[in-house]
Computed example of a mutant assay.
Amino acid sequence: MIRLYGMTGSGNCWKPAVAMKMLGIAFDWTEIDSVGGETRRAPFLALNPNGRVPLLQLADGRLLAESNAMLCYLAEGTPLLPPPGYERAKVLEWMFFEQYSHEPYVATVRFWIHYLGKREEWRDKIAEARVKGYAALAVMETALGKTAFLAGETFSIADIALYAYTHVADQGDFDLTPYPAIRSWLARCEAQPGFEAMR
């Protein structure tokens, strides 16, 4: 049985979980209190020296870290990931965008406000990060004004990757009202067979 070590409420942990649910892959979930420091303790560090969740343990015991790497592994040979070529590269392009231009701002501000309660104390750096978060949302809005999903007309792991923190952006005080294409895309993602929103 595959085991997924993760923290409920983490978009990065939700990504491989929802992909497995959509693909009908059975797995066990092991809750890890990342905020409480569990990922920095010896038992977990023995599994992932980087001290982060999610962590995927395959049935044969091999371990795989990094949520987007998990998505690529799990989706190989399925409709969620196109075969090698330009269409796959477009999926990967959006996944790299998610990790470099979206998650560091949208997800991080959410974490500071929603989990750490630093809205007032870190007001200045939150405001600075929010500018970059809105810039990422604007890129998505432009793309989703042209195609139904991020990498084209077909739902893919790129959509899973970016849905994760976009749909809870309001928990970082991001307002999605001016982004109708994003809001319609969120609804299309949620309508996919087997899709489950993050708890």
Rank of each mutant, 00 (worst) to 15 (best):
L4V: 01
G6D: 09
T8P: 15
G9N: 09
S10R: 10
S10N: 09
N12I: 02
W14S: 03
W14Y: 02
P16W: 01
M20R: 01
M22V: 00
L23F: 01
G24Q: 01
F27M: 01
D28A: 08
D33A: 04
V35N: 09
G37Y: 08
G37I: 03
E38D: 14
T39R: 11
R41G: 09
A42R: 08
L47I: 00
P49V: 06
G51A: 04
R52T: 12
V53D: 08
L55K: 00
L56R: 06
Q57M: 04
Q57F: 00
L58R: 15
A59Q: 12
G61D: 11
G61P: 10
L63C: 03
L63T: 05
L64N: 05
L64R: 04
A65W: 07
S67G: 10
N68L: 00
M70P: 07
C72K: 09
L74W: 00
A75N: 07
G77Y: 08
T78R: 07
T78C: 06
P79W: 09
L81V: 01
P84I: 02
G85L: 05
E93W: 07
S101N: 15
H102S: 09
E103R: 06
K118I: 08
E120R: 13
E120V: 11
E121R: 11
E121P: 05
E121K: 12
E121S: 10
R123S: 15
K125A: 12
K125C: 13
I126D: 05
A127P: 13
E128A: 15
E128F: 15
A129R: 14
R130C: 13
K132Y: 11
G133P: 09
Y134M: 14
A136E: 15
A136F: 13
A138F: 07
V139L: 15
T142C: 14
T142V: 14
A143V: 04
A143M: 05
G145Y: 03
K146N: 10
T147D: 09
F149W: 01
L150C: 04
L150D: 06
G152L: 05
T154D: 05
S156W: 06
I157M: 03
I157L: 06
A161P: 04
L162C: 12
Y163A: 01
A164G: 08
A164C: 07
H167N: 09
V168E: 08
D170T: 03
G172H: 12
L176D: 08
L176T: 03
P178K: 03
Y179D: 07
P180R: 01
A181Y: 10
R183Q: 14
W185K: 00
W185V: 00
A191N: 01
Q192G: 02
G194W: 04
A197H: 02
